[in-house]
Each structure stands twice: as structure tokens, then as C-alpha cells.
């Protein structure tokens, strides 16, 4: 199978680009990029390709958006076509946390806990306006968007979003995963739980 080509614009940090806005082609790489060898870049792409096409999701289903999530899972829209087939109900086995529905204040420690339990690399999708911004629930009980407690990668608007929108969001997330830098291993220390 053919691996996707190296995409220069994805791997090059903003600071390394010369030539201003109109000519956004990287002509020189930064020190950092020089040190990344040819092999590592290809490895990163390969890993990105593999990761984006086998997304294991953890559906954190709370509310009405769950109905459209069910539709997106079922026969007609079939999210499995895009490599996100299997919901894993253990955060340890999941790559993608889908926040489907309203997050209220009582729920927020649970959500944070689930997010912390997931292993790196992990991505988060805010499914519906409630998870993105609180939606039209603006009162004492609700959190104004899941991004107030955990970082979010993709926002899917809609109340609830149609399944097509979800699939679109998934494709955008896949592009994002492809252009991120992936390493085979990391020397960083894992962050402590609950911090």
C-alpha cells in the first residue's frame, strides 16, 4: 500500500517559513527540523497514517446528541467506513474521546478523569454545541463547553449535528492527525494522574 507523501507544510513550524504570507513555501528548515532525519519524518507519516485510520473511540455519551451518535454508528451513515469502527468503553484502550452531549458541573470531574486515564496519543472531539460551547444552556448547572476543562481538537457544531457533519469532523481530525508529528517513542515523563 502506498504511504501518503510527506507534507512539508504540516511538519514545518511557523517560525521556519520564509517569504511572508503570499509565498508560504518553506525554503529553509529550522535547526529542529534538520535534526529530524529523513527516516524519522517518514516514520512520523507512517505512524500518522496508521493512527488516523484506526481510531478507537470512547463515546462519552450524555445527552440528546447520543441519538445522532447512534445514527452515525448504524447502518446508513456507518462511521466504520472511516476507520473509527469500534467504540471502546475503556478509556485506556481509546484514542479519541468523543464528548457527545451536555457536560454539566456535576459531570465535569468525571470527564476530566476519563480524559486523564486515556493514554497518549489522544484526541478529543466535541460533538454538538453543548460540548463545544454550552449551547443554549447557559445557567447554573452547565459547563460552557468541554474545552473549559480539557483540550479539544475538533468541534462539530449542530444541535445535534447531522451524522454527515460528524463524519466531516472525523475527516478533519484525520487530517490533523496525519500532519502531526508522531514519534516511535518518547523520553518524556508521563504526566501525573489527576494533575
Amino acid at each position: 500500500m502506498k504511504l501518503p507523501m510527506l507534507r512539508p507544510e504540516g511538519n514545518v513550524p511557523e517560525s521556519a517559513r520564509l517569504g511572508g504570507e503570499e509565498n508560504n513555501v518553506p525554503v529553509m528548515l529550522s535547526r529542529l527540523d534538520e535534526t529530524i532525519g529523513f527516516f524519522e519524518k517518514n516514520l512520523s507519516n507512517a505512524l500518522g497514517w496508521a493512527r488516523k485510520n484506526s481510531i478507537f473511540q470512547y463515546p462519552f455519551v450524555t445527552a440528546c446528541c447520543g441519538m445522532e451518535y447512534m445514527s452515525a454508528m448504524a447502518g446508513r451513515y456507518d462511521i466504520a467506513r472511516f476507520g473509527a469502527e469500534f467504540p471502546r468503553f475503556s478509556p485506556r484502550q481509546a484514542d479519541l474521546l468523543m464528548i457527545v452531549g451536555t457536560i454539566n458541573v456535576k459531570q465535569s470531574p468525571v470527564l476530566k478523569r476519563v480524559y486523564d486515564q486515556m493514554c497518549e496519543p489522544k484526541w478529543v472531539m466535541a460533538f454538538g454545541v453543548c460540548a463545544s460551547s454550552g449551547g443554549f444552556y447557559d445557567n447554573y448547572a452547565t459547563l460552557q463547553g468541554a474545552d473549559r476543562i480539557i483540550p479539544v481538537d475538533v468541534y462539530v457544531p449542530g444541535c445535534p449535528p447531522r451524522p454527515e457533519q460528524v463524519l466531516d469532523g472525523l475527516k478533519i481530525l484525520q487530517d490533523k492527525i496525519q500532519t502531526q508529528r508522531h514519534r516511535a517513542s518518547t523520553m518524556e515523563r508521563a504526566p501525573e494522574m489527576g494533575k
Binding site: C64, T102, K106
Partner: peptide, 30 residues
Amino acid sequence: IGFLHRGFSKSSENSTWHQVLPYTDRLNYV
């Protein structure tokens, strides 16, 4: 329970009669 408490009553009391309708949609969203 209460992990999905969204303050239906409080929000409704601060909207006009027709604005409550979307909140009722989301009571039983099936």
C-alpha cells in the same frame, strides 16, 4: 442522578413562552 441536570426549569423561567419549546425538545430527545 443529576449528571445531566441542565437547569430546564431555571432556563425556561428566563425565556419567553415560545423560547421554552427548544428546551422541551431536549427533555425526551427520542
